[in-house]
Design a protein around this nucleic acid. Structure first.
Lengths: 341, 341
DNA sequence: GTGAAAGCGCTAACAT
DNA sequence: ATGTTAGCGCTTTCAC
């Protein structure tokens, strides 16, 4: 291997007195090439440090073997797991991933989508930004029949599959649990209700209240961005109330943790006075005190499932089933923050 | 825009009675094309839903405008920031990023590097996996004069630039701080000493001890993977000691937090009995109790700096300066975990 | 079992 | 200011 020009199949062909066609076939294990020739070709390729030119190949084949991924942020162990699961499946199937983060901004998401489109990905996997109002930026893909699949933060669309958990059920589970531990006046701190995940957890929350004959109080809902600062702010709001809640269901562990901490700082005893539940089973939930009750779901498996579904769609041309919703399991993890003393 | 064939510059050329060359130039704002023609070309391109074929372009130009990034994991806010900084600079300069995570495994890092090489990235930015023993997997890049730049977890190499913080100084700062607060018997929990970051922080720790006439005790060093479980394990080790430390410097906030929690669970008062310092200023450091003293450094800026340095190298052909080490600022953030009561 | 040749879409050197 | 043309490296149809 030297610093100079790239080695091409022509170089290999010339050195072996073969045609480029034969070399191309040989490298791809084409059945009509004799084993002996294949061996010679591969050996020569190896010794010259040949690497296939994917651009030429993509150009020729009109196919990139690349899948795009757009996620809100690279900053949670959940997302790290999701991506790891996707990478595993993609690599097994001969696909590469192009990953970008929207930083929770619809504007950036639109730019990212355009870049992916421009990069001619064969398919796209998306978890939506916090404030994305619609998904018209994915229309170009759909128009060209480039499959788009959503996961976790999804958007219902007739042409898109989705991989999710049962957020309604998860919200219901958490709320029921808090009620079972004695909470009667439960606050719900959550995100933009346009996002399926928050909307459905909210519905689950309401249903659990109803099923336990607790009147839903709209004043008990706090909508914010679920950041750490938002948790602190929410706590301050709660501290100023005459009638404080006896339970809080926050749809994000980080926000739950910061909220809990701020309440504690101001003398509120957790869980004696207020029970708290979070969401996501982020490592932080096991590090704050008291340990945070939360909802766990498996990022790695969600990533695998999403990638596998997309790739199946890509390879099975017959499979034209447009919409398909896959629901993965979640689990309520009960820790000290929600156990009535 | 329709579902059918892709629009090419030939389509545009035909419809406008121009040559493909003119269209190509027009789309690239070549100076020798009249403004009027450019406008017509761009308008037509727009209305046809034209998208440039990057493969054809890369094939022709022998340049991909793509930069590879290999990081240990996508799971910290630090890494999320680093990538965001890189993306910002890269996009401004017309480059795309291909990002992959080694999951802290040298084996996966080697595979990732091979994929990047195969993808013909124009350059590579790397933060090494926990256990990477050498960097021979990046040799192919260097042989082809594809610049490789390391950041944070770096490897000294004559042909590679690096963007880091002064880890020696940071380790020194933290240790001195603990000493200034009264610690005399300080444990150091850290990672693989082959990694520059851990090695140098360790050296800084030792130097601070020396400067304060404290004898270095090799028994005070615990080497592990700096995971949450490792923090717990380290705490258990410490709990069994007859002579417990009065200070602990952990080179990772997560590990520090879990270690602290485990100590507290077993009745150790923090910071009254043991002072603790972490590293990275992860959000968790502000959520655990007591809040964790730590070292802050700016991921976003490190990402910007790394990308900018690489791109400068890529564009300024004259700039052959091979090795260049850029040191970014860090800051000691003092919180309750290390303040003597 | 192997080869010849065309073409994927773009760019740039060289014309005009 | 615009056009002609060759070629980047690969794949595949058609021929032998």
């Amino acid at each position: 291997m030297n610093t100079g020009k790239e080695v091409t199949i022509y170089d290999i062909a010339r050195l072996l007195n073969l045609s480029s066609a034969t070399v191309s076939r040989g490298l791809k294990n084409h059945p009509s090439i004799s084993q002996k020739t294949k061996d010679r070709i591969k050996e020569m390729a190896e010794s010259l440090g040949y690497r296939s030119n994917t651009f030429a190949s993509s150009l020729r084949l009109q196919k990139t073997n690349t899948i795009g991924v757009i996620i809100p942020r690279f900053n949670s162990s959940f997302m790290s797991d999701v991506i790891a699961g996707m990478e595993k499946v993609a690599n097994n199937c001969g696909y590469n991933l192009i990953i970008s983060q929207s930083l929770e901004s619809e504007k950036k998401e639109i730019v990212n989508a355009a870049t992916m489109f421009q990069s001619r990905v064969d398919g796209l996997m998306v978890s939506l930004a916090y404030n994305s109002e619609n998904i018209s930026h994915f229309e170009p893909f759909m128009k060209k029949n480039i499959p788009v699949i959503f996961f976790d933060r999804v958007f219902s669309h007739e042409k898109c599959s989705a991989v999710i958990i049962d957020n309604f059920r998860a919200g219901y589970d958490m709320t029921s649990h808090l009620i079972s531990q004695g909470s009667k006046n439960i606050f719900h701190i959550t995100g933009n209700l346009n996002r399926n995940v928050y909307k459905e957890r909210f519905e689950g929350y309401k249903q659990a209240l109803a099923d336990n004959k607790i009147l839903f109080n709209p004043m008990n809902i706090i909508i914010n961005n679920l950041n750490m600062e938002d948790g602190i702010e929410a706590a301050q709001k709660i501290l100023q109330l005459l009638k404080k809640p006896d339970g809080i269901f926050v749809t994000n562990d980080f926000c739950a943790a910061s909220c809990m901490l701020e309440l504690k700082k101001n003398g509120v005893k957790i869980p004696q006075e207020i029970l708290i539940g979070g969401f996501n089973n982020d490592p932080i939930s096991a590090l704050v005190e008291p340990n945070l009750t939360t909802i766990d779901y498996k990022g790695f498996e969600m990533g695998e499932m999403t990638a596998q579904t997309l790739i199946n769609h890509l390879t099975n041309t017959q499979n034209l089933s447009l919409t398909q919703t896959i629901v993965m399991r979640h689990e309520l993890i009960i820790r000290q923050s929600s156990i009535k003393q």
